[in-house]
Nucleic acid binder design. Structure first.
Length: 286
DNA sequence: AGTATCCTGGAA
DNA sequence: TTCCAGGATACT
């Protein structure tokens, strides 16, 4: 799943439901996904939940952590007395555990399910001192602080302006590069470039100072919209309680091939850039 | 910079 | 039946 707004929303939900809870047991159904020794987890209490880029860190009170990445179709869904009566999206597989449930955390009167249709995601058990030596976290670039609750490095305009001016990469590929900027994925990259009226194919170094500022502001604006709607549940993403987000109904241009552009009468075009579906308005975005 | 790759389901 | 999918990495 997803991108900064989705993971941030999930982080808040997990804090609500599993903070202070004890890991009574862990059932691993797909060993590839759960990497590490579950004995380092069992008996420990959940101390805190953090997000770095699109990654989640569940901190335990025994100095171990669970580092989690949901990739495209992962879910972390809590089912317990706190969530009884809440609707759970069919995207979870209906009832839990489902055929897509690969790891189950028994949290004493409640269960946290890791579901993942495509099985690309991972959960790594590691000592907290080793977390930042994991390349995924170590190499994560600074991220837009749209929440005031940031664990990683914070993106500044000076830094953003510098990396844009120094790169010949297509601007869309650059802003999705997690080593340069953390948290932006395909949906919000497309929408931010549309909001800034910049052609996603443009070489980064050709952007004017004014365009760089516009793009910087647009990135913050679309991520905030994403948060406001609880993320996008276009595919498999759901919140910690199994409910869906709604940003998929509010995208500016993502997924709108052939539909009229929101600001002119032109039609939205789809191309591939770096192997990823890329949506833009050839008339508006220059 | 582009492509294959880990997987499976759903849409065309 | 073929193509596509909110990601990240390891190739050519």
């Amino acid at each position: 799943m997803p991108e900064l707004p989705e993971i941030e929303t999930l982080k808040k939900g997990l804090r609500k439901y599993i903070l202070g809870r004890t890991m009574e047991d862990v059932e691993v159904r797909v060993p590839k996904i759960f990497q590490g020794d579950k004995r380092d987890v069992i008996g420990a209490k959940v101390d805190n939940i953090k997000r770095i880029g699109k990654g989640i860190i569940i901190e335990l009170d025994n100095d171990f952590v669970l580092a989690v990445h949901l990739k495209l179709t992962g879910q972390l869904v809590y089912v317990g007395k706190e969530t009884q009566g809440k609707k759970i999206s069919p995207k979870t597989g209906g009832s839990l555990p489902s055929k897509f449930t690969h790891v189950i955390f028994n949290l004493n009167k409640g269960y946290l399910y890791y579901n993942d249709v495509r099985r690309f995601g991972w959960i790594k058990v590691m000592h907290k001192d080793d977390t930042m030596s994991l390349p995924f976290f170590k190499e994560m670039g600074p991220e837009p602080d749209v929440t005031g609750d940031i664990t990683g490095k914070v993106l500044t305009f000076d830094y953003f302006s510098n990396i844009v001016k120094r790169s010949k990469m297509a601007i869309k590929i650059l802003i999705m590069d997690q080593k340069r900027i953390g948290g932006i994925g395909n949906i919000y990259a497309n929408d931010a470039l549309f909001m800034a009226r910049i052609d996603p194919r443009r070489a980064a170094e050709t952007l004017t100072q004014e365009e760089i500022k516009k793009l910087y502001d647009s990135i913050f604006a679309v991520l905030k919209e994403g948060l406001k709607y609880g993320g996008s549940s276009d595919v498999n993403y759901v919140h910690a309680d199994g409910e869906e987000g709604n940003y998929q109904f509010h995208t500016l241009i993502y997924g709108k091939t052939g539909e009229p552009c929101l600001s002119c009468s032109g039609l939205v075009k789809k191309i591939f850039l770096g192997g990823r579906g890329t949506y833009f308005c050839p008339a508006c975005q220059r």
